[in-house]
Design a protein around this nucleic acid. Sequence first.
DNA 1: GCCGATTTGTCCGTATGTATC
DNA 2: CGATACATACGGACAAATCGG
Lengths: 243, 243
Amino acid sequence: MPKMKYEYIYKDLKQKIEEEEYSYQDFLPSENALVQIYGCSRNTVRRAIGTLVTDGYVQTLHGKGVRNIFRPIDQTSYTIGGIESFKESSIRNKKDGRTRVLQFMELTADEKIARKTGFSPGTELYYIQRLHYLDEKPLIINHNYFLKSAVPGLTAKIAEGSIYEYLENTLHMTIVNSKRVVTVEKITQIDEKYLELDVNDYNCMAVITSQTYNSDGIMFEFTQSRHRPDYFRFQDNAVRKTL
Amino acid sequence: MPKMKYEYIYKDLKQKIEEEEYSYQDFLPSENALVQIYGCSRNTVRRAIGTLVTDGYVQTLHGKGVRNIFRPIDQTSYTIGGIESFKESSIRNKKDGRTRVLQFMELTADEKIARKTGFSPGTELYYIQRLHYLDEKPLIINHNYFLKSAVPGLTAKIAEGSIYEYLENTLHMTIVNSKRVVTVEKITQIDEKYLELDVNDYNCMAVITSQTYNSDGIMFEFTQSRHRPDYFRFQDNAVRKTL
DNA sequence: GCCGATTTGTCCGTATGTATC
DNA sequence: CGATACATACGGACAAATCGG
């Protein structure tokens, strides 16, 4: 039994949808019916439904009901969604992930790094270069910059596993949000070497740059995540706003 | 005066943040203070703040307050955000947009098109190929497939302007949500020709495929949007879920 | 076309829990 | 410890959209 009711209802409905207890285009029970089913207030039901809307699982229609628009086919292949570590998304996608640390060093941000990352010049950082394998195939090169003062005690050993696990479980840091930008960039020699790419095939790749904030309001991480173009897939659900 | 209170509060706070009335890292007034300021309930204030959180404008911190993490610099250059037409985003980005219709035809979905778009074989569709210019530079080629039964009376003339405007204002359709996937693909001869690209420079590009739903729960549009790699920028804010 | 029942959307006031300071 | 601030949850009221009779 989870602590929060809306979380329980959200997960329960989500599972029922995924298991096709409601089929595509069906309406879910009305809010009032769900209030009876789960023994809670209408606000709580509405909150759970609202989360399903942003997930792209359902759409709510004024005066009509809540319609299931989830299609299992959308979820195939390796997808990138919310904030999650490589390890987490590997597990979610039911793939075997492995990480190799190419570089681990401490450095002080100069003008060039400051412009690129958004950290102030003179800031002490960890710089980590990592190669992520999925089912033994190298797919992603990550260039991480972590704020040393916010992430003390980071080691290459930790970087081999999951840095987020270390941050959350050992340092008890709360990761809040991440501003991400997807662009397309030319392949570098490093990409070519480690991702086993051929410039005569693809000469550019998908790049996700992200600035991640913790609950102290500090941007503690800047990461450039370079993805093999043929395996890259970034998924999103947008809701038309009437505002 | 807008119809809804939370919308008014959301826009007001958003504007104050953008105009740096609260500076970066500052806390906004507490929820109770905002209740006094706007003369509304705490729920309403919280709803406005929740929207700002998903926008990546603020972060809420239990027991502390709501912190402004908006940085004007993040908003530079042409960005792709929620569901909006090319015309709308041109205006939002304060650029001069123009659209040229390359093809306009009616067709019936065969097996191949059905697999690609998600429409059933035999469905009658409009197929439109359009080239979008920004400041007289060709940046995007769109391949639109519209469900004919849901979008009757579409013409090449309308496609030159804004199809969404036609859907919403003339057909009174309500666009609800759009499932999008960003990938990287090889440049085709069509891309090369119209976007004035050189394969020796970039040989691939950013592609956004989207399936858009209306309030009848019908997927009425499948679009493949092919973007010049050097001008492509897809922006996003992810919130770490504790669920 | 109207009316009433149903359903979602907006908003309010209140109570209690939990984290921060 | 108490005061403050956000988080969860409840119950109720009314509006707006839909649908069937």
